[in-house]
Write a protein that binds this DNA or RNA. Structure first.
Lengths: 236, 236
DNA sequence: TTGGTTATATTTGTACTACATTAGTACTTA
DNA sequence: TAAGTACTAATGTAGTACAAATATAACCAA
C-alpha cells in the first residue's frame, strides 16, 4: 500500500529520509525492551538514565517514550518510574483507520479483508451460535423487511454483520470489525453514489440466517460469498 | 482483551486515570484533524500556534505530535511546517505485536484470527492463483517431504502458508500475516513443548495443494479447517 | 512496640529559554 | 538572466527550573 519507496526494485531517487533523534531513540528503546526480554510489570530505566546513556536530551527521550505510552506499552507512575504494560493491539489501529486518510487502493484491500474475514467466520459461527443469537438475527431481518428508507436498510445490514462477529465470540475480531466499519461504510456510500443503489447479492440476510439454523459451515461460506459478491465485483 | 476497566458493568473502584496534557492535546488534535476533514497533503498549524491556541507548552505539543509522526499521520519539513500524510496502518501494529507482551488470552484470539483468515482466503485463492504459484507450492511440499528435522518441517509449514497469502494478492493481508507470524510461532512452540510434537491435521499441505489444482473453494475451505483443526483444538 | 504524622527525596509532568538546522524568499550583483 | 547572499520562519535539540505526586525514612506519641 504505502512504502512504495522501499520496494526492492525501486531505483528512483527518493529524498534520503533523515531520521530524527527521537526516531532513533524510539527504535533503540524498542530493541532494548526486546533484548532484555521485558514483560508487563517489569520496570524500565528512568528518563534521565536513558537520556544520559544515549547522550541525548531528556526532551528527546520523552518524545520517544510518549510514543510507547500511546501504544500502551509502558505506563508511568510518579516517583516510581515506568513499567512495561500489555499494549492494546487495536488501540493504535483505531487512530489510523480513517478512510479519509487512506487511498483507494488501501480501502479496497481493507474491504477485501472484510470479505475474507466474514467468509472465514463460518466454522466459528456454527461452533458458537446460541438460541438467543438466532433470535437477535431474526429481529434484525424483520426490521430490515419493514425498513422504509435506504438509510434504515443500511443500518440493518451493519447490525446483521456486526452480530455475526459477536456470535463468533472473539473479542479482537469483533473490535477489529468495528474499526473497519467506517472504511466499509465509506466504500458503501461510494458504491451508492456510483450505482444509485446498494448492491443486493443473490443471498439475503434471511437466507444466511436460514443456513445458520439448518445448514452447514460449507454452505454458509458459499452463501456469504454470494451475499458479498456484488460489493466484491464493484471494487475490483 | 485488555480494557477490562472500561467494561460497562464494572463497578469496582479503579484508580481514576489522570490523563496528562499530552494525552489531551493528542486527542484534541485528532478531533481537529477529523473535524477539518484534512486529507494527505493538507498543512496543519505550526507547533507554536497549536501550543498557544491550547494554552500549553510547545513541549507538550511536540510530544503529542511525535505520536502522530510515529503513526505516519503527519510529516514535518523544516521551515515549511507539517502536513498530513497517509499513515501505514500496519506500522503501529508491528511495534505492539510482541508475543511476550500479550497475555495468553490475546494470543489465543490472534491465533483464532489466523484460522479465520486462512479459511476465508479460499475464494480469493482460486480467483488469483497462477501456474507459477502452483510450482512454488509444489517445491515447498517436496521440501517438506524430504525434511529431516522438526525445525525444517516447521519452516516449510510457515513457507506454505505464507505463500498462500502471497497468492491471495492482498498486500495488507500479506503483511498482516507476516506480523502475526511471531505470535503463531510462539503458540506453536508452546504446543510443541506441551505435546512434544506438532499436531498434524487430517489434511496435509499436499492435500491442500491438490484441491487448489483440481477442487473448489468450498472443498478448500473445509480442507483448511481440517488441516488447522488440531491447533484449533489445542488452544481452546 | 505500635500507629500515625511529618519530612525528605526521587521521579515524572510542564513550562520556558536558547540556539542549531533547514529551507523558503527576497534582494544583490555580475 | 543566473548565481550568489542575506534574511527569515519553522522544526530539532539542549538545558534549566519548578510543580506534583508518592515511596521511603525519620520522628513522635500513646
Amino acid at each position: 500500500m504505502i512504502d512504495k519507496k522501499n520496494e526492492p526494485g525501486d531505483t528512483s531517487l527518493q529524498p534520503l529520509e533523515k531520521i530524527s533523534m527521537t526516531d532513533r531513540v524510539e527504535s533503540r528503546l524498542g530493541e532494548y525492551f526486546k533484548s532484555q526480554g521485558l514483560v508487563p510489570g517489569d520496570p524500565i530505566p528512568k528518563e534521565l538514565e536513558i537520556a544520559e546513556a544515549l547522550g541525548v536530551s531528556r526532551n528527546v527521550v520523552r518524545e520517544a517514550l510518549s510514543r510507547f505510552k500511546m501504544l500502551g506499552m509502558i505506563e508511568t507512575k510518579k516517583r516510581r518510574g515506568m513499567v512495561m504494560t500489555q499494549p492494546d493491539i487495536l488501540n493504535s489501529l483505531e487512530r489510523v483507520l480513517d478512510p479519509y486518510l487512506l487511498d483507494s487502493h488501501a480501502r479496497k484491500e481493507i474491504f477485501e479483508l472484510r470479505l475474507v474475514l466474514e467468509m472465514g467466520l463460518s466454522h466459528l459461527l456454527f461452533a458458537r451460535i446460541r438460541k438467543e443469537h438466532i433470535a437477535e438475527l431474526e429481529e434484525i431481518v424483520q426490521r430490515e423487511l419493514n425498513a422504509k428508507s435506504v438509510k434504515e436498510r443500511v443500518q440493518c445490514d451493519i447490525d446483521f454483520h456486526a452480530t455475526l462477529y459477536k456470535i463468533a465470540g472473539n473479542d479482537i475480531l469483533r473490535r477489529f470489525q468495528k474499526l473497519l466499519l467506517p472504511v466499509f461504510d465509506y466504500e458503501l456510500s461510494y458504491e451508492l453514489k456510483l450505482k444509485d443503489k446498494v448492491s443486493q447479492g443473490k443471498v439475503t440476510h434471511q437466507g444466511l440466517l436460514r443456513i445458520l439454523q439448518t445448514g452447514t459451515p460449507q454452505e454458509f461460506e458459499s452463501a456469504m460469498y454470494e451475499h458479498l459478491k456484488p460489493h466484491f465485483d464493484t471494487i475490483s
